[in-house]
Design a protein around this nucleic acid. Structure first.
Length: 136
DNA sequence: GCCAACGTTGGC
DNA sequence: GCCAACGTTGGC
């Protein structure tokens, strides 16, 4: 089991929209590193859902419902999508500021490479973020 | 709205 | 194969 984080601009595709639809085709990835991460995702891997630009916070948890297949939104070869389904909205969002403030999370690619939109997350980091999301 | 960081493209 | 120029992302 691996853990991931995906970014979405809420203006384009928000968590609420994701929940309403019930399943998302994660299309439009045009970056090789992000693409490689998509191709490493396995069914039932857990995925943190992050709102970029507006909010800058992790809002909920999703999981992989279908492993990678060719991106239907482009003719170009080599790009792929996965399907995601919502698991749970976090009781409390975890902001980028909180993540940056925690010494244990400094190595996250979310911070180190802010432009990458599909990011692997280590188990320790994942557990910590889930714990933050449930703090009172 | 600005700009830093990063990726990609193309000239040489 | 190097590197300058350009485009894009996303934090501030």
């Amino acid at each position: 089991m691996n853990y991931w984080l995906v970014k979405s601009e809420p203006f384009k595709y928000s968590w609420d929209h994701f929940v309403t639809e019930g399943e998302a085709v994660w299309d439009g990835i045009r970056n090789y590193q992000a693409r490689n991460n998509l191709m490493s995702m396995k069914t039932d891997d857990l995925v943190l859902f992050y709102h970029s630009n507006e909010g800058k916070e992790i809002v909920g948890l999703a999981k992989v419902s279908k492993e990678f297949y060719p991106d239907p939104t482009t003719e170009e070869k080599g790009w792929v999508v996965v399907n995601l389904v919502p698991v749970a909205k976090f009781p409390k969002t975890v902001t980028l500021a909180e993540i940056k403030a925690d010494r244990r999370l400094q190595d996250m690619l979310l911070i180190r490479n802010s432009r990458l939109s599909v990011i692997p997350v280590r188990l320790e980091e994942f557990d910590l973020i889930v714990a933050f999301a449930h703090e009172v």
